[in-house]
């Protein structure tokens, strides 16, 4: 059995003639916090959607805890132990924070244990005052935190966060970075992000996507010092 919690082998995703992913090989060890970065259209979000079951890869395998999850249904992937926070918060807008978290605790049958867990997660993410607020009437940053709390509450083996800091204030971003670092003490985390400031706040290891492939992988500072990566980010033609 593979030593990696997640392993993508030669994953490709084609939309008609467009190759959004073109043979991605990616490995992630248990306990890691990895940032996926790259400019718009690099393929990181497509790769993320392949991991969550939203897209079925055209080719390749995605092994999670040794089982191929490529092309499986979203709920099967969630049940396998992957928790997802989407780019635009995807929540139960007509329900309160408490009810959203109640639903996130799908596997907890005991009512007392469930309430304790909800209170614990709300405290951990700092959303206790929002307990009875309806999600549809909450600010974007608060919604981001509630969605993160839902992922934390479901206690997955792997947490996937797609641009979690998008639309947040500086204060909220700092708090979010602290929550993600704290989360990484107990969970393996993958964050899709292109905000360098935020990446520096949370990550050691980064993987850079470019044109549907992995361009570079390694420690955040060495990667950001890499001339090829800088060229890609600054818009200079790669390889020129």
């Amino acid at each position: 059995m593979s030593v990696h919690l997640l392993e993508a082998r030669d994953v490709a995703m084609h939309f008609g003639g467009v190759k959004a992913l073109d043979g991605v090989d990616f490995r992630l060890k248990k306990g890691e916090l990895r940032c996926l970065l790259g400019p718009n259209g690099a393929g990181k979000s497509t790769f993320f959607r392949c991991l969550t079951g939203t897209h079925k890869p055209t080719r390749g395998h995605i092994l999670f805890k040794g089982t191929d999850i490529a092309g499986k249904e979203r709920h099967d992937i969630a049940r396998a132990g992957i928790g997802v926070k989407t780019q635009v918060p995807s929540l139960f807008d007509g329900l309160t924070t408490h009810e959203n978290l109640w639903l996130a605790l799908r596997t907890v049958r005991n009512a007392v244990a469930r309430e304790e867990k909800i209170a614990d997660v709300m405290e951990r993410v700092g959303i206790s005052p929002l307990r009875d607020n309806v999600l549809g009437r909450m600010a974007h940053g608060q919604r981001q935190l509630v969605e993160l709390a839902m992922v934390v509450a479901s206690d997955p083996d792997l947490v996937l966060l797609d641009e979690p800091a998008a639309g947040m204030t500086d204060g909220e971003v700092e708090r979010l970075a602290s929550i993600i670092r704290d989360l990484n003490r107990t969970h393996t985390v993958v964050v899709v992000e292109h905000d360098m400031h935020f990446i520096r706040m949370i990550a050691d290891q980064v993987t850079v996507f470019h044109q549907g492939r992995i361009l570079a992988e390694g420690h955040v500072e060495s990667i950001l010092a890499n001339q090829t990566v800088r060229d890609v980010y600054l818009g200079k033609k790669h390889g020129a």
Binding site: H75, R79, F92, L103
Partner: peptide, 21 residues
């Protein structure tokens, strides 16, 4: 029943939480 309401509210989120919508 609550899972059914969850699907009504947001089918994608319900599935991402493991509910078979």
């Amino acid at each position: 029943g609550r899972a059914v309401i969850a699907v009504r509210e947001n089918e994608v989120r319900a599935e991402l939480l493991g509910y078979n919508a």
